[in-house]
Amino acid sequence: MPTRFTLIAILVSLFVIMGVTGCDKTVSGPVVRIGYMNCNSAAETLQRFKPLTAYLSEQLGRPCEAVPVDTQDFEEQFAAGAFDFGHFNSLLYIILKENQDVQLLATEKRGQFGSSTAGAIIVRRDSSIQSLADLRGKRMIYGPQLAPTGYLAQYNLMLDAGIDPERDLDYYAIPRGSFKHEKVIYGVYFGAFDAAAAPVLDLEIMTREGKISANDFRVLAQSEIIPYCTFGAAKNVDEELAVKFRQALLELGPDTTVTIDGEQVKVLKAAWIDGFEQREDRDYDLIRKMARRANMPPYQEF
């Protein structure tokens, strides 16, 4: 007859075995494809999001694959069912919500505004331009058209001030290639343009990195604050999987690591992200209002 001590020892051993097996997360099942919007290049996107994808794979217990996608191709690929989840800017979110019924999961936090951000119209500190009204007849540089805080927000600011960027400016340009937002800011800094549509986050990052000084520019106007980049799930994704995905994102902390090629990598740091927040779809209504006013997708009328 086993003694009380033996019974306790058996129970403890069982708990230890359960704990150890619980830690070993097996990954199996169909591949979960995650589309990531390219900021600069596919290679950079993959490098940034490889650890996050590995982390999600661990948390979901399913193999995950990162798919870099250009902004303008995102909707088409999403509609074709190329991925189950997507990471995109907030304008793309409202387009996908409107057209593809994408489900909001979590909003990315980055910089001083957390999970929000804003767009600004900037001029050089020594510029004679004092107000938005002074922009008439001036040269201006914008970010890419589907950039909520590099184009849409500033376009609206100007419309609100009674300036039609299409007619009232001398001309406006959009830089080509990668690092468009930096090019926009440098465009004003080096005097190639009189004013620029700069995302506040890029101004913040470039200031932090010492590329520009807070004193180099004046902010003529700053837009209302809108949600930043967003994770969403395709409408046909299993509800339970989507909830797990959101949980995994919200649980990410600065010290969360994954093993990539034998090295421990900090997930958030690698992805240039501070964390994730749970937000509501109605928080994006401001962007919808802006898109309508600027006659942009998903409300564009010809």
């Binding site: 001083q112 600004a120 913040e204 000084s213 807070a214 520019f217 902010v219």
Partner: peptide, 15 residues
């Protein structure tokens, strides 16, 4: 009332 500039200056000081 230069709030965006104030945030940028704070970022610079934080460096």
């Amino acid at each position: 009332g230069a709030l965006p500039e104030a945030l940028l200056t704070l970022e610079e000081i934080s460096r």
